Computed example of a mutant assay.
Amino acid sequence: MAERHGRRVPAHFGSIGAEEAVCQKSVGMADRSDRETYELRGDPTAVETALTELGPLVWASFIGADRALVRCEAESSPEVSDVLEHYPDISAHVRTSAYAAIGLIGPRASDLLNEVDLTPSGLIVREGRDAFEILLPADHGAELWNFLVESGEPFDLACVGHDALDRLAASRRIASD
């Protein structure tokens, strides 16, 4: 276990290199409680405009015409809050503790998500190509984790820790430079 942004998360599940490889070849599953979750409510046009302004700082999914869940890295949270303060037609609340967040990373993540039924409470937020987060009420997190471990077997799913996620993020940054 390791502390990330004041929260305890799995550092690794045995082999950082193997976990990194899983995310590149099949699907890795990670606890993403290290990130912040905001709930936005208000005028739909204002919500959409705010999300556009926030751009690459956040990942978002509408859960109603006037309501969206927004995810961001913990270190981006002050900047996200600052932007949202400029929208009087939106109420924005940090709801991190209300949701469990499980990440699925890898080329087979989309295939797995197409096979599992997350209704009624699961919400999928696309973080990027081959990277998704599933958000659901916090008290269902352990149940979903176990369900995905079992359902992900045919997709070669493996649990990954934050050390592997950090290495993957660093290699993506280097590749984009």
Rank of each mutant, 00 (worst) to 15 (best):
H5I: 13
S151F: 04
E39D: 07
S110K: 14
D177A: 14
F147M: 06
S61C: 09
S26G: 00
N114C: 09
F132K: 04
L144N: 01
N114R: 15
D163M: 12
V9I: 15
H86P: 01
L57Q: 10
E48A: 14
I134E: 01
L57C: 04
V116I: 14
L168Y: 06
A101Q: 09
R67S: 10
A142S: 13
E19V: 13
Y38W: 13
L148F: 10
A169R: 07
V47F: 03
S97H: 12
A68L: 03
A164N: 02
E143C: 06
A169G: 02
A74F: 09
R35V: 05
R173I: 08
R172D: 09
H162A: 08
A2S: 11
R172N: 02
E36L: 11
G161R: 10
D139I: 14
E73G: 05
S110N: 09
I105D: 01
S26Y: 03
E20I: 09
P88D: 10
I134V: 13
R41L: 10
V22P: 00
F147R: 06
T37P: 00
D89L: 15
N114Q: 13
D166T: 15
S176D: 09
A131V: 07
A109L: 02
E36Y: 04
V9H: 00
D163T: 10
L144R: 04
A158H: 00
V47C: 07
A138H: 06
D130V: 05
L148G: 07
A131P: 00
S77E: 05
I63Y: 02
L112M: 12
E143H: 10
A50Q: 01
L118S: 07
C23I: 07
